[in-house]
């Protein structure tokens, strides 16, 4: 059972030290499950299991 967005979203905002209006926090809570599901879907891409991240990194500055 994933964490309750009504708990998680305010906690993450507090951790980030940003303070939207109560109405805005309510919108963020309402939108959270949809995005969480969309992000979970990224772990369901089988070919990504052993794939590297697409990040550019060079030891030479």
């Amino acid at each position: 059972m994933p964490a309750d967005p009504a708990v998680l979203v305010p906690a993450l905002l507090a951790a980030a030290d940003i303070t939207p209006s109560p109405e805005e926090v309510a919108i963020m809570i309402a939108e959270f499950p949809g995005r969480a599901a969309a992000l979970d879907a990224l772990y369901a891409v089988p070919e990504a299991r052993y794939e590297e991240p697409d990040l550019v990194y060079d030891a030479v500055l």
């Binding site: 980030a16 590297e52 697409d54």
Partner: peptide
């Protein structure tokens, strides 16, 4: 601010799905 709600692991996962 949506970005404040995204865990780092999920961000890295996006970059892996991108390569796929």
């Amino acid at each position: 601010a949506t970005g404040a709600l995204v865990p780092a692991g999920d961000y890295v996962q996006m970059q892996r799905v991108r390569r796929v």
